[in-house]
Design a binder for these strands. Sequence first.
DNA 1: AGCCTTTGACCAGCG
DNA 2: TCGCTGGTCAAAGGC
Length: 305
Amino acid sequence: MAFPQWMNVGGMFPSVEVCGIPQSPFGMSHQQALAQVTAQAALHAQSQMHMQAQYQPCLVTTTKDLLTQYPSLNPGEALQQKHQMPPSTFDTQNSVVEAAEFSHSERKYQPPPAGDKPTDDGYNWRKYGQKSIKGSEYPRSYYKCTHLNCSVKKKVERSSDGQITEIIYKGQHNHDRAQVNKLSKDGDDSNGSIHPQSKPEVVSQAHAGNARKFTEKTLPAHSVTRKDQESTKVDHSEPPGSSDNEEAGNAAVQDEERGDDEPIPKRRWRKYGHKVVKGNPHPSSVIANQDVNCFSKIIREKELL
DNA sequence: AGCCTTTGACCAGCG
DNA sequence: TCGCTGGTCAAAGGC
């Protein structure tokens, strides 16, 4: 079984294959092992859901659990199993934390190459920001879904040793995975690593008990930031089929309709950038009519639709 | 040509 | 009120 390329950072997760079929040291194929993992995880999750899901808007998943039970699994597979867990057993949330901290004993960490795609989860993401986080050697990266009218975002955090520790999704996709429209640039998806049906975008946890790092450090008590919780609430209050995108779009439209209600200086004269321009000894301060840009973009997008 | 990443700024929230 | 921090924006440049 393959796993997204990004998971194999630096090739630290060598997969074992026998006659083209991944094998675990225990004599069962990876797929068999994964099937068991899936079943166990589902059971485990069911037994814990009543304790956690009722008050946790977002659940944490860690591959450690799976790796503990099945050391033969490489973390990518374990994580994938997590994706393949029966969605019905989980409360679907629009805010997801994926704990992709890999503690495989054989791994050799190599710093992720700059610009590497943190995830190949079937959607196309565009990095729109990067922020150095206090206490973390590696910056947090911010991604937006590139799909039209899809405002899903995700944050990718790395631990101090450079491993991806969290992927925090915000919002919900209102479209299918990108593979439908666009062939993956990172590799061939025909290997089954991406299963639109079996790999729901929203994943939950098998159990978070072992995700010590997250519960202690990044995900105290409820695993998500307040903002994430809020976004979750928003989605819960929305009728099925609606999405953040619509919300965003509506907001934009409302903003447009609102129009003159808001004081112009507050809306327009905002300096939003201060950029060093090549060949110019002085940084350029840019005053932009963001609303105009924003509206023209919306109009353009609507036209495209 | 178009998309994506990098980069450094602004802004808002919080203590 | 001020400083810190996280989140976002958009120009510039690379692919």
